[in-house]
Design a protein around this nucleic acid. Structure first.
Length: 400
RNA sequence: GGGUAGGUACCGAAACGGUUAAACGGAGCAGACUGUAAAUCUGCCGGCGAUGCCUUUGGAGGUUCGAAUCCUCCCCUGCCCA
């Protein structure tokens, strides 16, 4: 195992808070002495969400722990998913079936294996104990919290103030998350800053129930591609790690410059000094950022290809080497012709005929390099043509 | 349980019997400008082979030539009283 000072330094990097830091040091010391790894808990929802770069911030931190020889425990909130973490604006969620949860989790693992060594990782489901929890026990747990305390939580407070509903079950969420820590005997629990309250609930309950309280570590929340709101699927500002290299690269290039520094620190291995140097040239810096993040999830070759692709399409405004191909069936053609609006819908580039019309009128559509302006146009297709929508959507059409 | 204010498109929010797919803002999309950035400007932002037609303002009925707007019942939420 790695010596204390170095461990501490690695752990501290890119965190917002470590509470209480002194306890962390104690835990590390005793772990070294007994040669016993610390148990690091991280909670996830089995809702089948795509993992995006925002999620990778805590997961990368978990990797630090894993590399230091500690034990990572993923707490799968299959029971708590019924409530939905009140963080953010969610409504009550549908109850997931067991097979559904299994499938979601497979998808989850498939994604995080790009970051963590899954063989050394433990997965636990909280229905294992929460489903069995008796009302009596729940009462006992809840007697450790007051409404005022829970209402302090920022998102509850805001909702309450603005007259939005808060349901009883939501108040129970931090409690249950805290109870998970009790059962799992976690030494450390990790989460984004918005999780602070829930993480602290774990400390409280562990202490009350006679266990050594966990240390909580919070990591920053990552803003999405818009540079304002936190990265989230519902804000459409996310970059999924399963997306194609070109997509990841392109989306990263579109983030505001002001975000680059944070992205570099939280999502790449580059050193402070390298980052500082790079940032002097924003364009190059961003390209480097995009490339190195793509490399985290794909081979280097793919990252280079993504960069080329970007340069071709956006910097040179040329047609990319590769693009999706659509084979047009004969029944779609009338005397060898097809209505442009219909064609766009067939390619799924547009969602409706109106959508297609609009885009044509806005000069967003071109065929073989020529902008189409007439939405009533019947076009005659050659064996092979290239249809372009907006700046970045290309489709190769074949008629043979 | 009683009182009261509400439920409008992805979100926030106007309109409160008749120039109407429903002001305005945000998000999104397209175009211009760029470093595909940001900022800014412009346009679009329910559907239909379409100078017209169809479906929309919590749900179901009703009044009316005409309803998001009025009435009845139901569902949901905030606040106050208990």
């Amino acid at each position: 195992m790695v010596e204390l000072e170095r461990q501490l330094k690695i752990i501290q990097k890119n965190t917002v808070e470590i509470l209480p830091e002194r306890e962390l040091i104690e835990k590390l010391k005793s772990s070294l002495k007994k040669k016993k790894p610390l148990r690091v808990k991280y909670g996830i929802d089995p809702t089948g969400a795509e993992i995006h770069l925002g999620h990778t911030v805590p997961i990368r931190k978990l990797k630090d722990f894993q590399d230091l020889g500690h034990k990572i425990i993923f707490l799968v909130g299959d029971f708590t998913a019924r409530i939905g973490d009140p963080t953010g604006r969610n409504e009550t969620r549908p109850i997931l079936s067991k097979p559904q949860i299994e499938e979601n989790l497979r998808g989850y693992k498939q994604q995080i294996r790009k970051i963590l060594n899954l063989k050394k990782t433990e997965f636990r489901y909280n229905s294992e104990w929460l489903a069995k929890l008796k009302l009596e026990e729940l009462l006992k747990l809840s007697s450790n919290f007051t409404i005022a305390r829970i209402l302090e939580r920022d998102d509850f407070f805001l909702r309450y103030k603005s007259g939005k509903p808060i349901f009883m079950q939501e108040f129970l969420y931090p409690l249950m998350q805290g109870y998970d820590s009790v059962v799992l005997n976690s030494d450390i629990e990790l989460g984004a800053t918005e999780q602070k309250f829930n993480l602290l609930a774990g400390r409280t309950l562990q202490e009350v129930l006679g266990k050594e309280p966990q240390v909580i570590i919070t990591v920053p929340i990552l803003e999405g591609t818009d540079g304002k709101k936190k990265m989230s699927k519902s804000f459409h500002n996310y970059i999924g790690i399963n997306e194609k290299p070109e997509e990841i690269y392109g989306k990263l290039m579109s983030i505001p410059d002001s975000l680059m520094k944070k992205y570099f620190h939280l999502l790449t291995e580059l050193s402070e000094r390298e980052i500082f140097k790079l940032l002097k040239n924003p364009l190059l810096a961003k390209k480097r950022l995009a490339a190195s993040i793509v490399e985290n999830y794909y081979e280097k070759r793919k990252a280079e290809k993504a960069e080329k692709h970007f340069e071709t399409i956006f910097q040179k405004r040329k047609v990319p080497e590769e693009m999706p191909v659509l084979q047009l069936k004969r029944e779609n053609l009338k005397e060898g012709k097809i209505w442009i609006v219909r064609l766009l819908c067939l390619t799924k580039l547009t969602t409706s005929h109106n959508d297609a019309r609009r885009l044509i009128l806005q000069k967003a559509v071109s065929l073989n390099g020529e902008i189409i302006t007439n939405p009533d146009l019947e076009i005659e297709l050659k064996e092979e043509s290239i249809l372009k929508l907006g700046k970045r959507h290309f489709i190769k059409l074949k008629t043979t």
